[in-house]
């Protein structure tokens, strides 16, 4: 670091359907940007070294660890967090399934699990056991022992198949609606 303060960088990123610009220290992690600068505190921090998955968000529809990513790396991309899922108070089918199947206890890991599952079900509406394990295997829950989480994701998959929509498709529609009046910047 030089004597003078580290230069800030301008970042423009779309978060939950809204384009936002900010000036940040380059070292700001995406997780801190979401939580501290944007107040989107549903994305949690459990380890800050990429292992636990509590901070998982979607980047252009792919589940990534926001704790080991810089906010500047997300510039020009679309970030989706747990806050985008419920639509006017109505839970997203994935959220509802976690409630129905008791896929949570303390709920600290839950947003991460839901975001990871959202990516999976968008790509693969009827995942095999192996595919489910592969995705859920990248997220740690200390409370539930996982069985109920597997059931929750299965249940959500079934409901989504019945509705004939993908989890993110559903979201895109809701975001458009919510962002419509005075949306954008």
């Amino acid at each position: 670091m030089d004597e003078d303060k580290p230069a800030r960088v301008a970042v423009t990123v779309t978060v939950n359907g809204r384009r936002l610009s900010a000036e940040l220290e380059p070292r700001t992690t995406l997780a801190d940007f979401l939580r501290v600068d944007l107040g989107l505190t549903g994305t949690h921090l459990g380890c800050e070294h990429g292992v636990c998955g509590a901070c998982t968000v979607l980047l252009d529809g792919r589940a990534v660890r926001s704790c080991i990513m810089l906010a500047v790396q997300a510039a020009g991309h679309e970030v989706t967090t747990i806050e985008a899922l419920a639509n006017e108070g109505e839970l997203h089918p994935l959220q509802q399934a976690f409630v129905d199947k008791h896929g949570l206890q303390c709920g600290f890991c839950t947003p991460g699990f839901i975001m990871a599952a959202a990516e999976l079900l968008e790509r693969d509406p009827d995942p095999t056991e192996q595919a489910l394990l592969e995705t859920l295997g990248g997220q740690v829950c200390r409370c539930t022992g996982y069985e109920a989480i597997i059931e929750s994701v299965r249940d959500a998959a079934e409901k989504l198949r019945q509705q004939g929509v993908g989890p993110l498709e559903l979201l895109a529609a809701a975001l458009e609606k919510n962002a419509a009046p005075g949306g954008g910047e």
């Binding site: 505190t41 549903g42 949690h44 806050e83 839970l91 959220q95 509802q96 709920g107 839950t110």
Partner: peptide
Amino acid sequence: KGVERLEDPSLVTGRTEFIDN
């Protein structure tokens, strides 16, 4: 009975006020 938990909607939407918030 396996009653639905009151605390869940807030947790699954990421709204629960954990201390770091």
